[in-house]
Nucleic acid binder design. Structure first.
Lengths: 129, 129
DNA sequence: GCGGTTCTACTAATTTCTTCGTTTTTAGTC
DNA sequence: GACTAAAAACGAAGAAATTAGTAGAACCGC
């Protein structure tokens, strides 16, 4: 499996929109993106990103209808794994625990969240020396 | 306090070198970087990065001697916080717990590491409803 | 069928990042 | 003081990413 390229900042924004709702048209995604942007993006700009991303294999296009629709070709989970792994290499010398401690240091968690993490930790260390 | 810009990939590589040893000269950092690079970087390339980063305020320059020496103007911790926060926003809707679960899912931790995380979790949830 | 609308494709300008060659400055050596 | 070796500054090319204008095709209502 040839790994897909790491999405750029803009590509990621589009993937986020697609993960929320897909398939989606260029116009739909454009509107979603422009809700949180001051200089709004032109339609053709967003279209261009879709063309590039189709080329790269990050999204798939359905051109059965005149108005093409797009879907993500990578899952949120895969992408998160990829990007966390990347950050890990670049900034934490691969130390997962350091990253986790760093992340935990930034905010307080709810009890439920903490419990969930505890659970995973317990699973991981069970039976280890 | 005007936040400093997010370092680019190359700038980050230089910061990593400086965090390991500073102050350091251009040549020293160049040699460090080139240990793990196949097309090695030219001296002037590395120098250019230092000039840009000085401009941006990411490093400080000591030009007392003819051979200038540089030190990081941002700490590893600050940078890590910045970049983790960035990833959090961009990919995890700000959910620290989701990021942590994702990170923990990638590798098994040593017992010591797990214990350290447990400790922090306990501190954080103490006295919470 | 025709005019307006909306879509995709094409092309290209702009910006940011990376890279390095050339020139200038500096400090030491004879 | 001129010569050389090393460093810094400058300028600019190349590459990647972002942005958008324009042209041509497809559809819709009349």
């Amino acid at each position: 499996m040839s790994d897909l390229p790491k999405p750029t900042e803009s590509e990621l924004a589009i993937l986020r929109a697609l993960w929320k709702k897909h398939p989606a048209t260029v116009r739909e995604v454009m509107e979603t993106l422009n809700e949180e942007r001051d200089p709004p993006l032109a339609y053709t700009t967003v279209l261009k990103f879709f063309q590039i991303m189709t080329e790269k294999g990050l999204v798939t296009r359905d051109d059965a209808d005149r108005t093409h629709s797009y879907s993500p070709a990578v899952s949120p989970d895969t992408t998160k794994k990829q990007m966390v792994g990347d950050l890990l290499d670049r900034l934490f010398q691969g130390s997962v625990s350091e990253l986790v401690l760093q992340a935990l240091g930034t905010t307080k968690l709810s009890k439920a969240e903490a419990a969930e993490i505890q659970k995973l930790l317990n699973q991981q260390t069970r039976g280890k020396s």
